[in-house]
Nucleic acid binder design. Structure first.
Lengths: 194, 194
DNA sequence: GTCTATACGCGGATAGAC
DNA sequence: GTCTATCCGCGTATAGAC
């Protein structure tokens, strides 16, 4: 079915979000103007407001979408029986998922302070839910005697910080393949908790 | 010795840098205006340009000063004999140093992309020099058979990411004291490399 | 749905008086 | 060294034509 000339609602919307994601990741939310985003999409600045009420919503939608993707992808992972296997699966999942979308990961860390207080709270809740999954694994392993963890909260944050650090240096086609990277990090995580 | 009225060069300069540090850390470099900085210092915007040629230099000086402080403080640490002791000293030093100046640490991570290419290169060189100190410790320990490290480069970055992560959650007066935090992280680092 | 035009304030930086 | 005044471009967002 032919559409009215100039009607691209279904494809322009996603392109606006993609352009915003890329530009926010490159220059930072505060440094990117609506005009730049419009230019990247190939429309005039005014047209953006058909797809977002304002710039803040653009940022929030990107971060919310990223956290939703993260939690649902984690939920879709195959179940494992032992804490040891669950920790390995979590480690490999975290590395893979984060390396697949470096821009979203980047702005999810860097632009939190540019969210309004209400939006910030919502994203933080999702982040804490993700951390809770790892902490539960550590608690289960400690309770069954296979892990030795001084403090599950701190160890949770330490492991996530270590794993997310991959994004600062990994480049596909570099010295190490993704499976090699996963193996090296899993080795470190495993030793940290045993 | 009395000075000319309005002459405060020796104290206003530092106050400008302090205000910039605090505001950049809170809102981000791009989101902070020279007028805001001036207001925090208690002068008019034009007066700032007696202390910095422009906003970019203000950011660069903060990051450069932080990296210089980091490297000279590390150099001032007592020498240790074994790789094991050197790694423990590095771990505790890193945590202590970073927790003492959370704002400088924060902007040194977040605002790198707002440096001009030349300024960025200079800061990156200093950062790599710091990482080199840790990597040397790991190499020495591996060569003498006390450490088991799959990849010294990655382990270096993983340890630093893990340790710097303390800054995201630690608050003085919280559940854990600084010595307790140091002990927990040193325990994790130690296990990671042995 | 997109365009052009525009309102209106804030941005970095400078000039010149005191 | 600091002030006031100012240049001038860019910021978000909106109005109204097509």
């Amino acid at each position: 079915m032919a559409r009215t000339a100039g009607s691209h609602s279904d494809i322009t919307g996603p392109r606006v979000r993609e352009a915003a994601l890329s530009l926010f990741a490159q220059h930072g939310y505060a440094a990117v103007s609506m005009r730049q985003i419009a230019k990247e999409v190939g429309v005039q600045a005014g047209a953006l407001y058909n797809y977002t009420p304002d710039k803040q919503s653009l940022l929030f939608d990107l971060l919310k979408g990223h956290m939703d993707d993260l939690l649902s992808a984690l939920a879709d992972e195959p179940r494992q029986d032992t804490p040891h296997d669950r920790l390995e699966a979590f480690t490999r999942f975290h590395i893979r998922f984060h390396l697949e979308r470096p821009q979203a990961v980047f702005i999810s860390y860097m632009e939190l302070r540019n969210l309004t207080p209400e939006n910030f709270t919502e994203i933080e809740d999702l982040r804490r839910r993700y951390e809770g999954v790892l902490e539960t694994i550590l608690c289960d392993g400690r309770d069954s005697g296979v892990f030795h963890v001084a403090d599950t909260k701190i160890t949770t944050l330490a492991i996530i910080a270590m794993l997310t650090g991959v994004n600062t240096w990994y480049r596909s086609g570099g010295r190490l393949s993704l499976p090699e990277v996963e193996a090296i990090y899993w080795d470190m995580v495993r030793k940290t908790v045993t």
